[in-house]
Design a protein around this nucleic acid. Sequence first.
DNA 1: TTGAAAGCGATACCAC
DNA 2: GTGGTATCGCTTTCAA
Lengths: 335, 335
Amino acid sequence: MAVTIWDIAKYLDLSVSTVSRALNGYNDVAPKTRERVFEAARELNYYPSAAARDLRRRHTSRVGFSYGFTTTDIGEFAARLINGAVAVAEKADYNVMLYPLTGNQIEKLTRICQEREVEGLLLMGGEYLTESVELLQKKQLPFVVLNRWFDQSGVSFVTADHHQATMEATRHLIELGHTRIAYVGQSALGKLHSERIASFWQALREANLEVDEMLVMSAGTDLGAGYQVMRTLLELSNPPTAVLAIHDPLAIECLQSAIDAGLKVPDDVAIIGSDNLRESHTTDPPLTTIHPPLAEIGRAAMEHLLVQIKDDTLPPIRLKLPARLIVRQSTIGKR
Amino acid sequence: MAVTIWDIAKYLDLSVSTVSRALNGYNDVAPKTRERVFEAARELNYYPSAAARDLRRRHTSRVGFSYGFTTTDIGEFAARLINGAVAVAEKADYNVMLYPLTGNQIEKLTRICQEREVEGLLLMGGEYLTESVELLQKKQLPFVVLNRWFDQSGVSFVTADHHQATMEATRHLIELGHTRIAYVGQSALGKLHSERIASFWQALREANLEVDEMLVMSAGTDLGAGYQVMRTLLELSNPPTAVLAIHDPLAIECLQSAIDAGLKVPDDVAIIGSDNLRESHTTDPPLTTIHPPLAEIGRAAMEHLLVQIKDDTLPPIRLKLPARLIVRQSTIGKR
DNA sequence: TTGAAAGCGATACCAC
DNA sequence: GTGGTATCGCTTTCAA
């Protein structure tokens, strides 16, 4: 049996209320008593029952991290967000629960809200983000959306500046003299997909380059989809000389496809990925990529979530952290 | 305010006990009543309070994943374990809490045990594994150790067969004609480190090859340590023609170091890594590596943990899953 | 400064 | 089948 405050009370011949107050740092308990209680607690190896404390206090010391978009597997991308978030939660004595969003996501979120197992939620991806956000707002569960920009006010989010980063990447290619640039996205990524295409086109237009819709492709989520898309692009009568991919794994498939087609990268075709995953370092040539500060995003989001949990009257946070372009040899070649 | 069983009881003019029993699927409640209760629950959007349920039932539906060895950051290695574990927990309606093991690990584990916030623990790494295991046994918290072999009986673990895999990798090199093979480990990995060296030596001895202790190195945990170690090895008067590294990032540093030293891989020096991380696919040449079935390990461990939680009289599981060698061009060159 | 007692929201035992 | 009620372990008034 676990030791309870009753045990301490009996042990010291005190009442449970005094013990509780001592333990919780109230100042209406004699310093000497307080000492004895703490000592007894240590001696008896007492730790409060989470369930009892939570029930009585009507709140927990847990926050949730919900995730799952095209997959509910944690990859390097999600892991970096989680690491940042966990580090901050840890310091504030909060524990993080993992909520993979499989099955009926809305029902799942409803349950999470009503069970009051967590005080707040970090929301990454999820196919029904709009509905999810509405639900959480209605249920008044504090939450911060990760990696998505939200126009409607009242929603907290922390994201990388994808618009700026995509523009920068596109301009980088334009400056290198490319005029036919392809975009390889993934429509399964929803808004992210369309938004980035918009940024891509904007950069082209600002440089007075022709926008060729034939050069915007969407790859499926299955392995090798990017490889096929790249092959299609290269078979065009007027193929692109540069490709911007929505994430590194896709970019790497494009790279492989180009090389297998007998092309030299970046001489024949330049390639840019996104997210600066570890695998982007080791390709041949190393991949130029957009680096979103994911751990930082996770940290900032968790920081704000904890603040919001403590004071729900605070205004929502709308944070867009700069993403930088990491230029490697897949665009500029060997020096 | 959240809706409670009292609300349902009042709404249906029933007692809370009946409502509770209906909800929990007892069969001593009239089918019709049961129907009405479920309908009302759905209508009122009722979900039981996790804290109240946990307190009364004296158990939760949570399990913990504790991690942190040389770092408390989740990388691809840990993520793959987590993904397997979470998938199984999910199906059994268990939620997973993340417990990064920073600071005083033993105290942290003690708290976890006493707070009864989770029913069981998956244990990955941690510097004080022996002490941790002792503690958990004493506290009777079900747990399964990941990725470590435990000699003492009574401890459940699921691991990859590192011994077999290291032997296989070594033999692979021997079959290719290598006689001077180096091992690049990381002493910060503790037992893992020494065990693998033992397996490595055993394979050498079985092939009647000389065991040269000069060829066994330990790299630090800082970035670039592997690079330096490889350089040292290559500067030996009688340098190795093959290197076995304890994990892919280290192997990749060795690879880079060899290439920078003007050597051809695998012609001048062959390299093998471990863990089959994504980055091992994309190096040039692609890295031969040991593939431990990490998701499978996570799954098996969680499956056993849940079983053990239900019935603590069951014998511990001692599972060693085969790891296979994935042969790529860093050892066999282009075909 | 301390103790008695109510109550958080469930579950489960015991009558009826 | 159903209802009353003790109880889980803790926090928090309210009196003393």
